[in-house]
Write a protein that binds this DNA or RNA. Structure first.
Length: 283
DNA sequence: AACGAGGACAACCGCTATAAG
DNA sequence: ACTTATAGCGGTTGTCCTCGT
């Protein structure tokens, strides 16, 4: 026989996550880490399947996520990477610490793709559309840089050739970084992991939130620790996640996470590598 | 103010590679 | 060696929001 099934889908909740569910999941993971996604919903008291929890964490709740719109430079890099990697979103996302594959995929489908089409560039082949229609062979094309340039022209009348050079050098830098990272990774990955864990662990979320709770008002309290033994969680009970996130947003400079990119480069190679490292695989 | 269209994005589905039993 | 669950990935769908009429 193989493993136990991940979840029987009977009675499981689907659709958008509520604040309370986010609260429970985040609470659980911050307190316990992730040992096995199959067990997470059960232990966290959620009526979701492990897969759904994993997705929610990776795409929305992870503390190292970068929030906000994509910069022009990021757009350029995405176009460059897409021209080389195609729809391998996770690979592309690995070049953007704090961005998820889902986020990049959505951004590509809703914005970049359209821009390229408007500019007469086929978003699949990165060739001019007329050329693509003639079924030009799919060799490495030179249109990507042109499309980037066109987009920049469209967005800004102050485009200079320096920008293109910068985009090129940015991309080259990304590649170089990647190589460097792969080399250095084996050396001090553990130390950096510890640093990251310290960073997360140093946030005394429970006591801090308790302080905040004293001034909070009207959120309905919800048990965040049902089905869990005492002491498994910190004392986050009364506040809502949204308040917590809002407060943390102002309290915690998310940019500082971004600034950690250099030090936490190993996170690039996987969406939650630190979990892989810090937690044994489910037995 | 009401309605519909389109956009943006979160979440789900289904497939594959890998690992556990 | 084989079976089967899991994690991860990319494609697709559903829902909410905004804007125009």
């Amino acid at each position: 026989m193989g493993r136990q099934p991940c979840c029987d889908k009977v009675g499981l909740k689907r659709g958008p996550w509520t604040i309370e569910e986010d609260h429970k999941l985040m609470n659980f993971i911050l307190s316990n880490g992730i040992q096995c996604w199959r067990m997470v919903p059960k232990l966290a008291g959620l009526l979701r399947c492990g897969k759904s929890c994993r997705l929610r964490w990776i795409n929305y709740l992870r503390p190292d996520l970068k929030r906000g719109g994509f910069t022009k430079m990021e757009d350029n890099q995405i176009i460059q990477l897409h021209s080389r990697l195609g729809n391998r979103w996770s690979k592309i996302a690995s070049h953007f610490p704090g961005r998820t594959d889902n986020e990049i995929k959505n951004h590509w489908n809703t914005r970049i793709k359209k821009k390229l089409k408007v500019l007469g560039v086929d978003p699949v082949s990165h060739n001019p559309i007329e050329q693509t229609e003639k079924d030009v062979s799919g060799e490495e094309n030179e249109t990507t840089q042109e499309s980037i340039s066109l987009i920049e022209q469209e967005e800004s009348m102050e485009v200079k050739s320096e920008d293109q050079d910068k985009a090129k050098s940015d991309f080259a830098q990304v590649k170089d970084q990647k190589i460097e990272q792969d080399e250095v990774k084996t050396v001090d990955e553990t130390d950096l992991l510890k640093s990251y864990e310290m960073l997360c662990g140093s946030l005394d979320v429970g006591s801090w939130i308790n302080q905040e709770t004293n001034t909070s008002t009207s959120y309905s309290s919800q048990e965040s620790n049902n089905n869990l033994s005492a002491g498994e969680f910190h004392s986050i009970q009364e506040d809502s996640l949204s308040q917590w996130i809002d407060s943390v947003d102002s309290f915690l400079p998310w940019d500082s996470f971004n600034n950690l990119d250099e030090d936490l480069f190993f996170l690039e190679n996987s969406q939650c590598n630190y979990m892989k490292h810090s937690v044994p695989k489910c037995l």
